[in-house]
Amino acid sequence: MRMNLEGTSLKREDIDSKRVLTTRFRSNAFYAWDTGRGIGRYLQGLKAGEIWGTHCDTCNRTVVPPRIFCERCMKNQVSWVKLQDTGIINTFSICYVNWDASRVEEPHLPAVIEIDGASQGHGILHVLDEVNPKDLKIGMKVKAVWKRPEERNADITDILYWKPY
């Protein structure tokens, strides 16, 4: 025998006509995170159209985004290294689902891009464009497309997207 577990779903009119008790508030959770020395300098670099990483002198490893200590050896003997604004795709996805679960016509193309000049496997998360999604491949060479200098705001969107070259 099939059990009836469907319940009674709420409808918009139930809420509008106050047949059900509702309470309403707007989220008021605001933060202003200190970026500190590592990410602070990284973001300032983006404003100047540059990508900076840090090199751990102990582990001989260059990471991006930069950090002022190495999470492997836990030392803070790091030096700053200016990297290229080119790289290769480490991994990507073609996303047809928006954050609110709606479908998108033009798919979003997030990717991890290994930055030229950083140690192998080290890269940043960003988005791709000016590319047919069908052509995307791991290992594809891409380069940054920057906002115009006067539009840059020292944030990650100072790079508009990455495209194959």
Binding site: W33, D34, T35, G36, R37, G38, I39, G40, R67, I68, F69, M74, N76
Partner: peptide, 27 residues
């Protein structure tokens, strides 16, 4: 106010002192 450090950098600062205080050979 601690604008000169991110929370990660602030914790790192406390962390290396703690490990030194504990005479830890390695984390």
């Amino acid at each position: 106010l601690t604008p000169e450090v991110s929370y990660k950098e602030m914790i790192y600062e406390a962390c290396v002192r703690a490990y030194h205080d504990a005479n830890l050979a390695s984390h």
